[in-house]
Nucleic acid binder design. Structure first.
Lengths: 113, 113
DNA sequence: CCAATAGTTAACTTCTGAGTTAACTGTAGG
DNA sequence: CCTACAGTTAACTCAGAAGTTAACTATTGG
């Protein structure tokens, strides 16, 4: 119903730098230092962002020599998409929702007090 | 490409309490104090969470007497859904992505170095 | 082996998020 | 009008996120 894992995924994505990383890693895998070159951040800062993405399961590392390449994990995104899609099922149209809202207001005094 | 507004929406959703609020408000509009009754939080704490949701455009208030009812704004969610859907378009299957990854590794030394 | 490259770890600062209690504003209703 | 209710605002604490610099590890290549 309300998955715990989403906490990590959403927290990871709730940052512009990390969202950009996810974006470019969606286009193609990339080394950590390449990500660092693109933005005005120190390498340790990039490193931390990558760690957050990795902990959220959004990214995986692969070492090749001294270079660490990152790949985007699409599955982790799907969890979020599913959660959002789930809302669609019980979110009616705006009109239906407003009708529901009015019914709720009508009952509000009686039901709960 | 990478909407700014998503920062607020994602930050708002990156919290279990607020995600639960969004969930129940999706089921039906509700007063602030009702939300407070459901969880072990002080009213001011709830108030802040609601403010975050409102600033993100996920929720709207309507005063009725001394009671403030909250409604979920589905449109704000759509922005996030669109952003995620956009990833689907250029994310291939896992196999395709791995092939792309290998090609990238092959080029990595030559292209950017 | 040595220097440069790629990444990691440590230690620290700074800012923000999340919560608290206490005090205040506005609306109902006897 | 006075009390209780619904919500807001203020002032504060505490923890964690995000960044820094400096120092360390590991790999490549002359």
């Amino acid at each position: 119903m309300i998955p715990q894992d989403l906490d990590d995924v959403l927290a990871a994505l709730a940052n512009k730098h990390r969202r950009e990383m996810v974006y470019v890693l969606g286009l193609q895998p990339m080394a950590i230092s390449q990500l660092a070159d693109m933005r005005d951040l120190s390498l340790p800062a990039i490193h931390k962002h990558v760690a957050v993405l990795e902990d959220a399961g959004l990214v995986t590392r692969r070492k090749r020599g001294r270079t660490t390449y990152l790949t985007l994990e699409r599955n982790a995104m799907r969890g979020l998409q599913d959660w959002l899609a789930q809302f669609h099922t019980y979110w009616g149209s705006d009109d239906a929702s407003l009708a529901n809202y009015d019914r709720h207001l009508a009952r509000a005094g009686a039901e709960k007090g």
